[in-house]
Design a protein around this nucleic acid. Sequence first.
DNA 1: AAAATATTGTTAAAGTTTTAACAAAGATTT
DNA 2: AAATCTTTGTTAAAACTTTAACAATATTTT
Lengths: 210, 210
Amino acid sequence: MFKKFKIPDATIGRLSMYSRYLWEADEKGKNTVSSHDIAQATGVTPAQVRKDLAYFGEFGTRGVGYNSKELYNYIMKILGLDKRWSIAIVGAGNLGRALSQYKGFQQRGFDIACIFDNDPKKIGKKIANIDIYSLDLLEEKVKELNIVLGIIAVPAPAAQDVADKLVNAGIRGIINFAPVNITVKQNIFVRRVDLAAQLEYLTYYLEESR
Amino acid sequence: MFKKFKIPDATIGRLSMYSRYLWEADEKGKNTVSSHDIAQATGVTPAQVRKDLAYFGEFGTRGVGYNSKELYNYIMKILGLDKRWSIAIVGAGNLGRALSQYKGFQQRGFDIACIFDNDPKKIGKKIANIDIYSLDLLEEKVKELNIVLGIIAVPAPAAQDVADKLVNAGIRGIINFAPVNITVKQNIFVRRVDLAAQLEYLTYYLEESR
DNA sequence: AAAATATTGTTAAAGTTTTAACAAAGATTT
DNA sequence: AAATCTTTGTTAAAACTTTAACAATATTTT
């Protein structure tokens, strides 16, 4: 379908930003947007916007711009967001709880199917009406609820073990919030989100700029 | 001190990973590590490790490797983590609450000085023993508590306004969890962390790989 | 209807980052 | 103590990403 050549990773992240702006523009009745409009709203250059889109096809009209709604739909399809995805969260600690209740996932097409934890005090309870199950039920529930993505929100020492279990259960992609590298077999996609490291970029640049 | 040339942004993120591994290695009594050890543990190549470190100096001994503790200390200094930093969290919703209680910040030298929200029901209360104040007190508290970094954990429509207030109060760096671009004046460092976008990388690659 | 203006898609150039290769230097073995 | 092995720091090449320029095409103005 797509992928004529290798697409920069950063392009994918920008497409996500563009789509949010396009939705907003369309909501406000702005039917047509230019690469300049998109660039302005998302903090990149117009050339970058056009280049990013050009990887996937020709979506605009020269002299005119892009149809907001139409380009939104194209990008959502590129990102695989023309359908909904079921995800599981492993770890019902503070972070896991917050992620379970985070509205931003729903809005973008992600349904949290269930939560896993191995604390007997938590198993059987619910967070925001989502069931918490024992990790022993992982494989069963992944199949039953057609879960494709997993979020690891457990302490670092447990992360690799949880990752192995997710992969064994048949999950295809993982977001890892534990500040540790996890290794998985080929064809499983992993993204590490290290919250403290985000602050460390700031402190590095603050130190450097003085 | 550092910065002979432009340092890749990704290098900073990797230094953060390296430092976590070095701490662990030292704890386990592994006094010396090679670039290969670090690479293995963090999922990069040995050449990458050596290149990253070379931007900042010569820390190893040929034929031997690096002293774990010593390299850890160097990297922590590079990242500005040889001292502690005070941060404020704006937004006491689910995400703000979770971040307020996240142990990973403390461990890396970040102290959450206070939380801001404009919901009268929340103001005056505490989360994990941290005070919640009205946004009106932002400027005062930033000065009083020597707060340098801010975390935006409010809904997207409020993010730009909060960013402006943080900057006016004298904050130097911002992590923005709202899925929207914020603009700030020069010399203020911003990092956007878009949680849903992380999932969208996965769905993009899953679609692409079939 | 011609000229001016707007804006895309594409190509080439510039810039950045990663990878690979290897000389230099220390440790270990024979 | 010579030879071999290990591992860094550095240099050069390769790969990748962004920026800039501009022809192509549509719209608006004169």
